[in-house]
Simulated scan of single mutants.
Amino acid sequence: MTVVALRLAGPLQSWGSRSRFVRRETETAPTKSGVLGLVAAARGMRRSDPLEGLLGLRFGVRLDQPGQLVRDFQTAQRPKREKDGTTSWSSLPLSHRYYVSDAVYLAVLEGDRELAEGIDEAVRSPEFPLYLGRRSCPPAGPVAVGVSENDLEGALASLPWMAGTRQQRRHRARTVRLATVCDADSEEPGGELVRDVPVSFDPNRRQHAWRSITRGTVEVDNPHGVADADTGDEHDPMAILGG
C-alpha cells in the first residue's frame, strides 16, 4: 500500500465530532471527517460533491505535540429592520467554542498510489484554502509531508517527530513515545466506536457514520535528544533509604 502524510500544525485547531448548538467542542486529535474535509477542499470539491472516492482511505494520526485545550466565549447580534426604517439588534446566545492551541499532529492516509499522489499534489497547491477543523484555524507552514510505500502503522512509527524544536529539546531523551489513533476493523479487540465518517458535507443533509478506532503508542527518535538523558540515572532523593 501507499501512504500520504500531512503535518497539521497551527496556533489553533478544532476537531469537533459532537459539536451541537452553542457548545462547539474539540477532540484531542484530528478527526477523520476533518482531515478528509481538508483533503476535499485541497482537491476543489464542493460540499455537495460525493465523497466515495475518499471514504476507502485508512486513517491514522500521531500526537506529536498535544498542545493545550482553550475555551473561547463568542457573542453575536442579529440585525432587525423595524417598520419605521430603523435597525434594532437582538443578542444571540453565548457560544462556547473549544480549541487546541500550539499542537502538532502527523496525519496519515493509506490507499492506492494514484490517489495518495493526487492528495499530496492537491495539498501542495490547494484549490480552496485549507484549515484545521474550522475556518478560523489556518495551518502554520506546509501541510504536505510526502508519499511513501508503507502501511499506516509503519508510517506512524517511522516518520520523523514533527514537534517544534523547542519541544524536542525540552524532552531531552533520545527517543519519545507518542500516542496514536488509527482506523481499526470493527471486530478488532479493544476497538472504540466514534461517529466520524463523513457521508456528506452538504449543509442541508450533513451526515456522519460510525468507525472503529484503536489507541496506541509508537516510539520515535528525538533529533535533539541528549545521549545520556535516557540512561535512567536521574536523581532519586529516596534511594538512600534502600541502602
Rank of each mutant, 00 (worst) to 15 (best):
residue 76 A to E: 07
residue 107 A to G: 09
residue 152 L to Y: 03
residue 77 Q to P: 04
residue 64 D to V: 11
residue 151 D to C: 04
residue 212 S to H: 15
residue 122 A to W: 00
residue 96 H to K: 05
residue 116 A to W: 06
residue 12 L to K: 09
residue 237 P to I: 00
residue 234 E to M: 10
residue 66 P to M: 01
residue 131 Y to N: 08
residue 177 R to E: 11
residue 81 R to N: 02
residue 151 D to H: 00
residue 221 D to I: 13
residue 108 V to F: 03
residue 6 L to F: 08
residue 90 S to D: 05
residue 36 L to V: 03
residue 83 K to H: 06
residue 183 D to G: 08
residue 61 V to N: 07
residue 103 A to Y: 05
residue 82 E to F: 04
residue 79 P to H: 01
residue 177 R to T: 11
residue 150 N to T: 13
residue 144 A to F: 04
residue 17 S to N: 13
residue 189 P to G: 00
residue 222 N to L: 10
residue 241 L to I: 00
residue 227 A to R: 12
residue 153 E to F: 07
residue 64 D to M: 02
residue 241 L to R: 13
residue 220 V to L: 10
residue 146 G to S: 05
residue 169 R to K: 14
residue 115 L to Y: 07
residue 52 E to S: 12
residue 222 N to V: 05
residue 70 V to M: 08
residue 92 L to T: 03
residue 68 Q to E: 12
residue 143 V to A: 03
residue 198 P to C: 03
residue 80 K to M: 10
residue 71 R to N: 11
residue 113 R to A: 15
residue 176 V to C: 04
residue 70 V to R: 06
residue 230 D to W: 01
residue 167 Q to R: 12
residue 140 A to D: 15
residue 24 R to Y: 04
residue 151 D to R: 01
residue 206 R to A: 10
residue 238 M to Y: 12
residue 153 E to R: 15
residue 106 L to E: 14
residue 218 V to G: 13
residue 141 G to N: 07
residue 33 S to C: 03
residue 70 V to D: 09
residue 10 G to N: 05
residue 6 L to V: 13
residue 28 T to C: 10
residue 97 R to P: 06
residue 188 E to R: 15
residue 224 H to M: 13
residue 131 Y to Q: 06
residue 38 L to G: 06
residue 191 G to T: 04
residue 48 S to P: 10
residue 58 R to W: 05
residue 43 R to W: 02
residue 80 K to F: 13
residue 153 E to P: 11
residue 65 Q to A: 08
residue 116 A to C: 15
residue 138 P to V: 00
residue 68 Q to K: 10
residue 161 W to T: 11
residue 176 V to P: 05
residue 49 D to C: 03
residue 22 V to C: 09
residue 133 G to L: 03
residue 137 C to A: 03
residue 89 W to A: 01
residue 190 G to A: 00
residue 12 L to Q: 11
residue 101 S to D: 07
residue 194 V to G: 06
residue 157 A to W: 01
residue 230 D to Q: 10
residue 36 L to A: 01
residue 172 R to A: 07
residue 231 T to F: 03
residue 3 V to Y: 04
residue 65 Q to G: 12
residue 209 A to I: 10
residue 207 Q to E: 15
residue 147 V to N: 02
residue 50 P to E: 00
residue 192 E to T: 15
residue 97 R to Y: 09
residue 2 T to A: 14
residue 59 F to W: 06
residue 199 V to T: 09
residue 49 D to Q: 01
residue 158 S to H: 07
residue 30 P to E: 02
residue 39 V to T: 02
residue 44 G to K: 00
